[in-house]
Each structure stands twice: as structure tokens, then as C-alpha cells.
Design a protein around this nucleic acid. Sequence first.
DNA 1: CTAAATGTTCAGTAAACATTGAACAAACCG
DNA 2: CGGTTTGTTCAATGTTTACTGAACATTTAG
Lengths: 178, 178
Amino acid sequence: MLALELSNVTDSSEELNQKQPFEQMHFVEEVGLMFELVGLPRMSGRIFGWLLISNPPQQSHGELAEVLQASKGSISTMTRLLIQIGLIERVSLPGERRDYFQIKPNAWSQMTKQRMAQIIAFRQLAEKGLDLIKDMPSPLQQRLQEMRDIHAFLERELPLLDERWELEQKQSMLHKSH
Amino acid sequence: MLALELSNVTDSSEELNQKQPFEQMHFVEEVGLMFELVGLPRMSGRIFGWLLISNPPQQSHGELAEVLQASKGSISTMTRLLIQIGLIERVSLPGERRDYFQIKPNAWSQMTKQRMAQIIAFRQLAEKGLDLIKDMPSPLQQRLQEMRDIHAFLERELPLLDERWELEQKQSMLHKSH
DNA sequence: CTAAATGTTCAGTAAACATTGAACAAACCG
DNA sequence: CGGTTTGTTCAATGTTTACTGAACATTTAG
């Protein structure tokens, strides 16, 4: 399964990159599988995985295609997707016509926002359902009330949790910089 | 797209069920789509959706197959899946050989547990990655540190959030029962 | 201008997945 | 004992989806 045609990488000037290509590719593949588990295309996960460990962190379209053994089209589509959901960003170095991609600094907070959209949708669905069975005896409505309430709860609490995270993050930064 | 062969339902003794079959089936379909969005089979979502609004809340294998216009095999496979991930449960009434399914009382807390497994996997992946690039200059490690830290944070905080939810839940129960 | 390099879009395909339907098993009843 | 109801398993089908590769832009350089 793992593509092993890495000879092209070897003749690059960077020698360190070649030190553990096996483990690196394995890591990339694992991130791909995790993304699949979360409902995203595997290839988008591979790209993200490589951008997590690549040196330098900026990688061009072509480099991605070569390292991941994927077609240009795939890279183009998947980078667009990753940008759209806020996990990576484009960096265009001045004077270069090539585009580079890198992990977005607060990529994971973005994922939380994605999740919030789902939670809201679930709460709204629950309310829709409750409206449908509003004439049934009250105990029968409990299932949907629980669904509505827990999502309303999360809708309220997750943003607060995110704030706390950003606060903790900033504070630990201060410790280090000192 | 929506299957409209509901004549079989009509001749059931329950008249109320027939009042809004359109909206009901639409609701069922929407839950199906949400499940798909979260990475679960659409049919499992349909079953779950129907169990959210069905009267009575317990539905037999056969009833599910009829209402959802699905094959016995599909129902069997999908109910097994839903039971495995903790969203529904089997209830076998004494003296009945038929099995019934219903929404599990704390179904949504179960989903949180599912999510915890993902979060743990992501943290572990981040640590694996950090080990791979431990010789790179420290700023390059930031991407993976952030990934590790936020998941460690969630790993710590989500269970606490869940506890608070259960607490709030119990208290609002007391209010009602009085 | 042409030629080369970089990117995107899109039709086609190959693989994955849900779903069906039939064959099989088990429990119950006459 | 059949025969009926209920439920599972599994091979075959149909659909969806990721991925490729080629055709089509766009930019830069000579």
C-alpha cells in the first residue's frame, strides 16, 4: 500500500529529510486515516499530515504532489478544501510565482467552529421533531427534549471552553518567552 | 427521492400516526442526512430518526422495515451498528418473541464518548509526529505542539463538561417532578 | 511572440460503501 | 413433526466518492 518510490526525494539538496522517510510516510498515512474517520477525504489528511512534519513548513504544490505521489489535480482540489475549512493557508512569497501551503496557526480552533455548526443543526432538528410530536403524551417527548437540551448546552458551553483554551494558551506563551 | 408508498401504514389500526406522514418522513430523511455528515450510514440515521418520533417509542424489526421501506437485512445490520455505538437499545417484552428497539436514554452522552476516542487518537498522533521531528528547530515543532496541547486540553475538559451536564439534567428533573 | 512552468477544472474510472434479496438459522405454535 | 414468524449472514448490485490524467488557463521568461 505504501508507495516507496522515494528516489526523487533523495536527489534533493536536503539530506535530513531523507533520514526517516518510512516513519514519516507512515505518519502521513495515519493522519490520512484519521481524517477519513472524521469524514474528510483521505488525501486531504495526507496533505495535512505532511505539512505537520515537513521541513520547511511551507510546501509547494509540486512538492506535495511528489512526496505524496498524488496527481496535481488531487493536490489542487484537496488544498482548496483544506483552505476552505480553515486548516491550512496559502503563502505566496514575493517574487515567486509558486504558491506555498502551510498549517494555519489556529487550525484546531477552526475545527471546533465546524463542530459548532453540526451542533446547531442537531438542536434545530430536535426542535423540528418536537414540533411534529407535540400532541403526543409528554413522556414520549423526552427523547427529543434530551437531544435538544444537550445540544443547546454544548452550544452554550463550547465557545466558553474555547475562550478558556485561548487564555491558557496565551499565558503559557508568556512563560516561555520570558 | 422520498418514497411515498405509505398505503401499508394507512391500514394500521393507529390513525394518528398517519396524520403527518410527509413531515415525519421528511424529518426521518433529515436525520439520515445529518448522520451521513457525521460519517455514519444514512440508513442508521433514518432508523434513529424514526425512533425519535415513533409512537410507541419501541419499534419492531418489521415495523422499521415497513415504515422506512428498507430490507430486513439493512435493518438488522444498522440496528446492530446503532446498538454497538450506544445510541439505541433492544427491549424484549416478556412473552413476545419479537425484538423491539428504542432510543437509549442517555444516547448523546454516548456520542461524546465516541468523540473522546477520536480526541485521544489525535493527541497520540501529535506526539508521534513530535517524536519524528524532535531534531528540527523548535519553532517548527509548534504546529504539532498546538495539536497535542489542544487535544490534551479537550481530553481533560470534556469529561468535566459531561459531568456538569448530567448534574444540570438531574436538577431540572427534580424541578419537574415536584 | 513561443516555450516552459504552475495551477485549475472536469470527465472518466476504480474502489469503497450502502443496500438489497435470497439463503440460512432459530424460536414458537399447531 | 411440519409450518410460520422472526432475525441474521452474505454474495451481488447499484450508487457514491476519491482520485487520476488530460485538456484548458495563466503567468513568467527568453
